[in-house]
Design a protein around this nucleic acid. Structure first.
Length: 616
RNA sequence: GCUCCUGUCGUUCAACGGAUAGGACAUAGCCCUCCGAAGGCUGAAAUGCAGGUUCGAUUCCUGCCAGGAGCACCA
């Protein structure tokens, strides 16, 4: 965080100051790991059910005994049951037909002693479960309300460390809607991994090094206008860069100039370092505004510029290991690695190229953070590069047993093709936010009765949320066709639906004078409507959903879950009046239920880095 | 040319190899004197084509078709 303006004036000083920040960070994370309170996953009601099933299965057949492998979910609508477990996996290992196995297991379970399960029935390869409602219901509600904003968290990955490399915008280029994807997916994953017990290092791997800076320096010194830049830094730096690429097309010699300048920068040329530092800081100030709006934060911003030390040593080592070699013109290349296309490591003028800096980054991360997992949240167009990077690091022994994963995502397309800065088809994130906030504001004014002081804040929150949510609700790997109308939609299927549901509940709770969170709920089962119990069962699956989402790096599992939960609540809401419930014990029980729903919606959205409002 | 990704209602997205393929927008209707209608309820509407694997395929394999991305001195 602290390396925006540390007053350095040379590359050496810059790196020293960053090193110091990193040392503090490592200490801080170590301490946090020690002192953090973890919530036992086994304490959740759903875990107890799974354990019971697991035990019963193992009593009948000698199955693996791993609770994690029990596949539990809600049954489809037409099945009358609370939960369902499939036996397909076991049917393969036991070489029995799914239908027969399910029947045998169901019969066995029905004649055994049970605590949480009332009874089961077999259907095809499924075992449909009726739960001991009294026991289960009170356990779920009390755990949601007791844990509050920690409901859904667990200790499953306690002790593990993950480093997440995300956002990583390029200096001197506007923050496009494409970078939003890496930023919001990365931030959601950071929240999710933390929730299941990981120690999380959030690293913004800035694109602040490379030949582009040679180009930028050339453009700046030849065409730059100080006053224009001061007025609108990023826009002007972008214009300079665009002008450079245009002119370089006419005169290829300019590219040579840019390479030369970058090479000099890399060798620490004082004048060039000052320019580079200026570009970097101007950009970071702009980026910070965007991060603040999105409520995104990092533990460190170790850009590419930080990983250039000792690259000759690495090159030498890779050559000795027979992985890299000199090409005829003096560059360094890697050939025949795992059948991947060969690639360049170092240019023939001795300066570094991105993949070499990535290798050094891996080594640094291994040495300093020693993570179990590293996630690269980067677009799918870089898939090949990561295959090459991972293969090289593995072969050279640089990554040890770190699990490195490219969490790729599709492009944001416009008119079916990739957005491009040069073609001017890049949609600026600020522009999107501006419009969506204006739309939210109009809508709020239409609904009336909001005083101006909260109007701005609320429309900001709604607008920004819906942009984040639109991205996170879909599977990462497919391309997104950018569509203004869809982007500006604030109806069902947007974050507003969830925030609206939350606000509805908050409103009821205010009217019943119940402050959230309330600590105690009577452990009595008092359910009149079938929907109440169904809601509770769905609530119990939230911790499972969080885990599932982490295991697949898919934040959209959370949004899907929340939308189903909200829909079920809204249905309940139209059928039952909480305020008019005559029986006071029943009313109390219902209040606890909706409070638990609200808590879960809030927690889920918060994992996606989206805030809730008690009033829209 | 080679490699990878994606083809699902009109549109845009879901669906660990599993039960009747699910939502949203649009569309045809219904529901506010009643806890917030930014809501709820009821319709119509889809797995690119051809084979294969098996108890079962939108999902896995092969071929074809269509769209997108990548393939050394950019990142």
């Amino acid at each position: 965080m602290g390396n925006i303006d540390t007053g350095y004036s040379s590359l050496t000083e810059y790196k020293e100051s960053v090193e110091k920040d990193v040392k503090n960070l490592v200490r801080k994370k170590g301490k946090e790991k020690q002192e953090r309170d973890y919530i036992k996953h086994s304490s959740y009601a759903i875990s107890r059910i799974k354990e019971e099933i697991c035990l019963l299965f193992n009593n009948k057949y000698d199955l693996t005994g791993d609770t994690k492998k029990i596949n539990i979910s809600l049954p489809p609508k037409h099945i009358h049951a609370d939960l369902t477990v499939s036996v397909f996996d076991y049917s393969k290992t036991l070489r029995k037909s799914p239908a027969l196995l399910a029947r045998e297991l169901a019969d066995f379970i029905n004649t055994s002693q049970k605590k949480y399960i009332e009874s089961v029935s077999a259907n095809n390869g499924y075992i449909n479960i009726l739960i001991n409602k009294k026991e289960f219901y009170s356990q779920i509600l009390s755990s949601v309300l007791r844990l509050g904003d920690k409901y859904g968290f667990s200790d499953v990955y306690k002790g593990k460390t993950v480093l997440i490399d995300y956002s990583s915008p390029n200096i001197a280029k506007p923050f496009g809607i494409g970078h939003l994807r890496s930023t919001v997916i990365g931030q959601a994953l950071a929240n999710l991994y933390y929730a299941v017990g990981y120690s999380v290092i959030r690293d913004n791997h800035l694109g602040d090094w490379g030949t582009q800076f040679g180009a930028l320096i050339y453009a700046y010194t030849h065409w730059g206008d100080e006053a224009v830049i001061a007025a609108n830094p990023i826009e002007e730096l972008k214009n300079l860069y665009v002008r450079f690429t245009e002119e370089a097309r006419e005169q290829p010699a300019l590219k040579e100039e840019a390479r030369k300048l970058f090479s000099q920068l890399e060798q620490g040329d004082e004048g060039l370092v000052i320019l580079w530092k200026k570009f970097r800081e101007l950009s970071l100030q702009e980026f910070q505004k965007t991060y603040d709006r999105l409520n995104v934060s990092f533990d460190c911003m170790l850009g590419e510029s930080f990983y250039t030390e000792d690259f000759n040593k690495v090159i030498r080592d890779l050559k000795e290991k027979g992985i890299a070699k000199d090409s005829e013109d003096g560059a360094v290349i890697v050939e025949n690695l795992d059948n991947l296309p060969s690639f360049l490591l170092q240019k023939n003028d001795g300066s570094t190229i991105y993949i070499l800096r990535d290798v050094i980054t891996v080594m640094y991360r291994k040495r300093v953070f020693n993570p179990d997992v590293v996630l690269y949240v980067v677009g799918s167009e870089q898939k090949l590069n990561f295959q090459q990077l991972f293969a090289l690091c593995k072969k050279a022994g640089y990554s040890g047993d770190i699990k490195m994963e490219h969490v790729d995502f599709g492009l944001v397309l416009i008119g079916g093709v990739k957005m491009s800065t040069r073609k001017g088809t890049l949609v600026n994130l600020d522009e999107v936010l501006k419009q969506v906030i204006a739309k939210a504001r109009d809508l709020l004014l239409e609904k009336g009765e909001l005083d101006v002081s909260v109007l701005n804040k609320t429309s900001d929150t709604i607008g920004i949320s819906s942009v984040i949510y639109a991205d996170l609700k879909q599977n990462r790997n497919s391309n997104i066709e950018f569509d203004w109308q869809k982007m500006l939609s604030l109806e069902s299927g947007s974050s507003v639906y969830l925030q609206y549901t939350y606000a509805r509940i908050a409103s009821i709770l205010t009217k019943t004078n119940v402050a959230l969170p309330f600590k105690k709920i009577d452990p009595i089962y008092f359910v009149q409507d079938a929907l109440e119990f169904k809601l509770a069962v769905r609530l119990s699956l939230f911790p499972e959903t969080v885990l599932h989402s982490v295991e697949n790096n898919t934040p959209h599992f959370i949004s899907a879950y929340l939308e189903e939960l909200a829909a079920e609540f809204n249905n309940f809401y139209t059928q039952v009046s909480i305020l008019k419930t005559a029986d006071s014990a029943l009313q109390k029980s219902r209040i606890a239920l909706i409070a638990a729903v609200a808590t879960t919606i809030r927690n889920g959205l918060s994992l996606l880095n989206i805030p809730t409002l008690s009033r829209l």
